[in-house]
């Protein structure tokens, strides 16, 4: 069995905010009818998180649930439990028109923390990141410069960003450059 490795081996950079690649995160894409009671019970039971409404991300003891589109859910679970979770969900939803797919290895995860985290992202995304406009609990799918990404912010103001693994180096470089010392804009200060 091969060792599990993240895309950039936990790369880290420190500027006006710090950018670091997160450890492996179990990630499941679920597509199906999100209003179906059996589906809701299965995912909330798995993670302990409440069912998220449009563009929300919710957290529970066993993981998180993120609303990706009207028929798509992102399920975050610990990496070692992802295979079991996919098997159990697939079994529960086998009579439904639904898809459960382990996408952990297809993605890279970055954490962005520091006083300029908001403006670092605002430099790269067409999103209103002003405090009050984008707050904890919201999940935003958008683009980061030229590639697709999604991010959310926690109550401490730390951002988590996910992107495709194939563009991990590109996104890491973008974030690092946008956080270079001397590049502070102070627009949200």
């Amino acid at each position: 069995m091969s060792d599990i490795a993240t895309a950039l081996g936990g790369a880290r950079s420190q500027g006006s905010s710090s950018v670091s690649e997160a450890p492996m995160q179990g990630m499941i894409t679920l597509r199906g009818n999100l209003a179906d009671p059996a589906l809701v019970a299965a995912v909330t039971g798995l993670t302990g998180a409440a069912m998220p409404s449009t563009r929300q991300i919710t957290q529970g003891e066993g993981g998180s649930l993120g609303w990706m589109s009207p028929d798509e859910l992102l399920i975050l679970v610990p990496h070692q439990g992802v295979t079991d979770a996919v098997r159990d969900l697939s079994a529960t939803l086998k009579d439904q028109h639904a898809l459960v797919c382990n996408v952990s290895d297809a993605r890279a995860v970055f954490t962005l923390s520091g006083p300029t985290a908001r403006e670092v992202l605002a430099k790269l995304c067409p999103v209103d990141l002003a405090p009050g406009q984008f707050e904890a609990g919201e999940l935003r799918r958008t683009r980061v410069a030229q590639v697709a990404a999604a991010f959310w912010v926690d109550a401490q103001g730390d951002f988590t960003l996910i992107c495709f693994r194939s563009v991990a180096q590109y996104v890491f470089n973008l974030l690092t450059e946008a956080a270079l010392p001397g590049g502070e804009v102070g627009v949200f200060a």
């Binding site: 449009t54 589109s69 009207p70 067409p126 683009r143």
Partner: peptide, 12 residues
Amino acid sequence: PYCGVEADETEL
């Protein structure tokens, strides 16, 4: 109309 985001042209 699906996710309610006021999306910039470059996101579409």
